[in-house]
Each structure stands twice: as structure tokens, then as C-alpha cells.
Write a protein that binds this DNA or RNA. Structure first.
Lengths: 137, 137
DNA sequence: TTCTTTTCTTGACTCTTTCAAGAAAAGACG
DNA sequence: CGTCTTTTCTTGAAAGAGTCAAGAAAAGAA
């Protein structure tokens, strides 16, 4: 189980809830908190929601998972980190899909005028309708 | 007062709360809901928060205002619509600044792989630290 | 002015997320 | 292996943003 190594390498203590949360996020890309809690409880029925929230917060802080929160959606988490990919969100059903960066690496970080901000990340969200919702209308 | 014309052109009824909300959003770019409510009540002390929420929802639906919600922030509204600009958000204090599109017009809408989605908008959020927070550290 | 439709007020409520205090577990050291 | 310190988890309560529902009020049409 190399999930434990990931935690150790990030300087975090290895605990059952953290391993389970990390596993759940890997197994359910773009899952919201409720989904993560459910998935974690499949293996550790007794975990508190607070432990999950805390684990997610810790993992996010260490860069092992990434938190995304499109307008109108609750917080979602994913395990693809550091590869500069973006997301497509369906306006109708909220479904999320991954998109690799359209422009390449660095250009995404270039703003036309940074207003003096020290920019470290460019997040891109494409909005539209997923195939299912297009068919449904 | 051409705010009323804007409402009419969008096919909306002209009411005091709506005019006040529209005015407040124009006066306070990137304001959160609480700020909008306060600003509206400076002129209409009796408005309910529900009327403000409802007005914002209606105005957003008609494209007169735009709702943005960066991860970790509450909903914010702005009046610059349809000009394809983006935002810089400070990780420390949450301050938001406008950035004109770095790439121009259409290219922003091009994803490398759209997964069958019908994309109609690309939202870009630059993350970093604002000048004030950089100095403070 | 009167009527119909839409919008606003009031008040309760849901849902996500956070706070706080004590119990439990992880890792370090001998 | 056992003890100690620090971090994490459990439990329970609560805050904050946003929503729901029903009746009153106002906007626009005739």
C-alpha cells in the first residue's frame, strides 16, 4: 500500500482515516465530501465526518489532493495534482470532466496585467452542457 | 437612471429592490452577498435578504450580473459581463482583481478535448498573493 | 381604475462546514 | 518493549450561507 508512503513523504502521520480518505479520493475523482465520507465508511464504518473534513484539509494543505469548488457546487476533491489540468463543468447536472491544459505549461500562468499579485496558479473552468444533458433537452 | 432601462431590455419588471441591487453591484465590484445587502439597505432600509437573493438570482439568469465563487469564498457578484475578462484571487485575504483576457477572444473557449461537452464559457482564475499580503509576510 | 401575474416579506429551516474539549493513537526515545 | 509527547480523532454543538413556502404587495396590461 503505497498510499502510506505518500503520506510519509509529505511529512504527515499515517492514520487509518487519512489512508482511507486518500484512497477514496483516488477511487472517486471529483467526489464531493458526502461521497468521500460514504466511501471511507465502507471500510471504516466508525469514522466521524469531522475526521474526514480534517483529513481532506490536511491532504489539501500538503498538496496530495486538490480542492475544487465551481460556482453553485459544494466542495469537490481530486487526486490529480501538479499536472496543470483543468475542468469542464456541466451547467445542468454539475458533472465534471478533466481537460489537459490547452496551451501547454507556462503560458497558462501568464496574465495580461497581474496588478502586482504574485501568481502561482491559473485555474481554468470550462462551462457547458455534458453529452447526456444535451440529449435530454 | 438607465438601470431601469437595462432591466426592461432584459424583459424584467422594474422594482425598487432590483434597481438597488443592480446599482449596488455596479458600485461594489466583486462584492459578496452581505455587502450587496448592506449597500441596498443604505437606500432601502426595509428590503429583506430574500429579495436580494432573489434579485441577484434573476439578474444573474438574465446576464445583467455575473456570479463568481472561487474555492473557499462565498458567492460574489460583478457587473462587468460579456467582455471575457478573468480574475486574480489572493490566497491570503481573498481580494479579487480584474484581468483582461490574456489570449484574446475566442481561444479561451478552446479546450484540448471537450469530452463531448457543448462549451459556452471559459472561466479563468489566477491564484496568488496580493501586493498587501506580500508586504505583510 | 381594475385585474392578473410576478415579486417581496416574513419566518422557519436545510445543508455544509467549523469550533471546542477530551479521548485515543502515532511516532520518538531509551 | 514500554513510556512520553504531540498530533489526530470522536463527540456534540453551532455558525453561516442559502433555500422553501405562503400570504401580502406592487408592477404592468387592458
Amino acid at each position: 500500500m503505497h498510499l502510506q508512503e505518500m503520506l510519509r513523504e509529505a511529512g504527515l502521520r499515517v492514520t487509518k482515516p487519512r489512508v482511507a480518505v486518500l484512497d477514496a479520493v483516488h477511487a472517486h475523482p471529483h467526489a464531493d465530501t458526502e461521497t468521500v465520507i460514504s466511501a471511507v465508511r465502507d471500510r471504516l464504518p466508525e469514522v466521524s465526518h469531522q475526521a474526514v473534513y480534517d483529513s481532506l484539509h490536511t491532504l489539501t494543505g500538503s498538496g496530495l489532493v486538490r480542492k475544487i469548488q465551481p460556482t453553485g457546487s459544494v466542495a469537490r476533491y481530486e487526486s490529480r495534482v501538479g499536472d496543470n489540468h483543468h475542468h469542464i463543468v456541466c451547467r445542468s447536472c454539475g458533472a465534471i470532466a478533466d481537460v489537459d491544459c490547452a496551451v501547454g505549461g507556462a503560458p497558462c500562468l501568464t496574465a495580461s496585467d497581474d496588478h502586482g499579485f504574485a501568481i502561482d496558479e491559473a485555474e481554468v473552468i470550462y462551462w457547458g452542457r455534458c453529452p447526456t444533458c444535451q440529449t435530454a433537452s
